[in-house]
Computed example of a mutant assay.
Amino acid sequence: MQLIDGDEVRARLTYARCIPLVRDAMIALSRGETRQLLRAILPLGDGHLFGIMPGALPGAMGGRGVFGAKLVSVFPDNFAKGRPSHQGVIVLFESEGGAPVCVVDAGEVTAIRTAAASAVATHALARPDAARLAILGYGEQAATHARAISAVRPLDAIAVWGRSYERAQAFAARMEAELGIPAHASVEPRIAVGEADIVCTVTNASEPILLGGWVRPGTHVNLVGSSFAGPAEADEELVVRSRFIADHRDGVLAQGAEFLRAKAAGLVDDDHVAGEIGQVLNGTLPGRQSSGQITVYKSLGHVVQDLAAATALYEGAPS
């Protein structure tokens, strides 16, 4: 059995490699070519969680197929202590004899594939001329999203907001130096969002830090930070105003916090989830319908993304 650690994931799972992997996985999901259950989340107390995400990619490995699961802990307070908030493993099995063949560092895969999925959605849903990015949050996913979004759009500017203005400034300086794109910190999220064509929310906020009234017509929004029912990064108004696209419709109907809050308030029903990003990508669902439309991609993260990334790492590993 192979072990692929975090250093190897970072070295080999580039955005150029991961973005098309995720794109193909989401198309396969929407075509019904994958198998998966909704994630199971076990609360551990003090805001800590343990998640189990099983699934199968029958078409992977040259048609031989793979199946497996991601086992991941979520400890949001770890970031302030210099440790990853998401830690775990992806266990990959081959379908011919059912043997486990590979264990991959799930924290590093999650960081990269989540941002890659947002990049896929941004490429499909944002206006072609979208060039100004706002990132709400400066944690682990903030840097990966800046890198991934800049891979699919030629960005002119990046605005960053976080609860600590000083830390947001430091993060903006790092991204400007790394990416060569002008970046600055905003003192309020309203200011960052009001200047943006693309918005990524990557916080661990329990209550909305993005209000729909701040979002300009024509903006694309990736809602990323909340991955289960409960904590919501955006308010009900944004949900109502937007063309709302899911990574996985069944998952968002059950666990998409922003959508569920709007539904509980009687403002939308299940039909407001227009469909899945995989349907947009394969041409069976319209994405953006006008230049002035607000589009939202709700990312919960999906095991088929993890399995696709793990399979590519396994197949390309040195013998």
Rank of each mutant, 00 (worst) to 15 (best):
E140L: 15
T14K: 04
I198V: 13
P84A: 07
T144D: 00
A143P: 01
A116I: 10
P286A: 11
V9F: 14
G68V: 04
R23G: 13
E188M: 10
I135W: 06
A146G: 00
L307V: 05
D269S: 08
H302C: 10
S227P: 03
Q289L: 12
A124F: 14
L37G: 01
A183N: 06
F171E: 00
G212H: 08
A173W: 04
R12T: 15
E178P: 04
V193R: 02
I209N: 04
V199Q: 02
L281T: 07
A310E: 14
E178L: 08
A111S: 06
G316E: 12
R35F: 08
A142H: 04
D5A: 02
L300I: 10
N282W: 07
R127D: 15
V303A: 03
S227R: 06
E96H: 01
H220L: 02
E195F: 03
S95G: 03
K298Y: 00
A172C: 03
E207S: 10
W161F: 07
A157D: 09
L210C: 09
D24N: 15
T122Y: 04
T144W: 00
G68A: 02
A205I: 08
A183C: 14
P189M: 01
L136P: 13
S206L: 10
A121W: 08
L307R: 07
V215C: 07
H302A: 09
M61Y: 09
G59C: 02
E236D: 15
